[in-house]
């Protein structure tokens, strides 16, 4: 009996870790900074668990993902000055480093972090979480058309910058 309880606890801990891992990764792809990603993931997990305590949360993953997205958006609004600094640090303009100095992947990543938050979020939800446009729209709290246009514009911007980087 005790062994069963212990193994159930171990499974819970393992599940929680996997869940936290997924939140950290999602947040990491959205904000890039690992420490900030952990802060966001911790806050999202805490809020989700707190909400579950008050009333049942039917889809824990979706709830937590929504919190992550809200926190990323909120962070963008609240930290205008800091964001300018961080973006300057983590996403150097191509002309500063030169496209040649960056690998293809690094280039794409740098371009991704220069996209507006909404476009970046839409792309991450679609291409990392493999969500449908409707699912992504629900999590972002926007219309399906907005997700479509955000992805389209985001990809267009990535293609354009990439072309300029290598042609120019």
């Amino acid at each position: 009996m005790e062994e069963g309880v212990e193994s159930a606890r171990a499974a819970d801990v393992s599940d929680d870790r996997v869940w936290l891992q997924s939140l950290v990764r999602l947040a990491g792809l959205l904000v890039r900074d690992h420490h900030e990603a952990e802060d966001i993931a911790a806050e999202a997990a805490a809020r989700t668990l707190d909400a579950s305590r008050r009333s049942p949360v039917t889809n824990r993953d979706a709830y937590a993902t929504r919190v992550v997205i809200n926190l990323v958006n909120s962070r963008g609004r609240r930290r205008k000055v800091e964001r300018r600094y961080l973006e300057a640090q983590v996403a150097p303009r191509l002309e500063d480093d030169g496209a040649d100095a960056l690998g293809d992947n690094e280039l794409l990543l740098a371009q991704l972090y220069r996209l507006p938050v909404k476009q970046r979020t839409a792309l991450v939800l679609r291409f990392y979480l493999d969500l449908s446009e409707r699912e992504a729209a629900e999590l972002m709290g926007v219309a399906v058309g907005t997700v479509k246009s955000s992805c389209s514009r985001g990809l267009q911007a990535l293609r354009h910058e990439r072309k300029e980087a290598f042609d120019g």
């Binding site: 990491g28 293809d104 794409l108 291409f127």
Partner: peptide, 30 residues
């Protein structure tokens, strides 16, 4: 670009591992 982005995101996601203290931090936040 879409293929590269999908591959890149899945690849880069592994850069963000959970540190051991994160579970404790979640509890503190709760």
């Amino acid at each position: 670009t879409e293929i590269d982005l999908r591959s890149l995101l899945h690849d880069r996601a592994h850069d963000y591992d959970v540190t051991p203290s994160l579970t404790a931090r979640v509890e503190t936040r709760r």
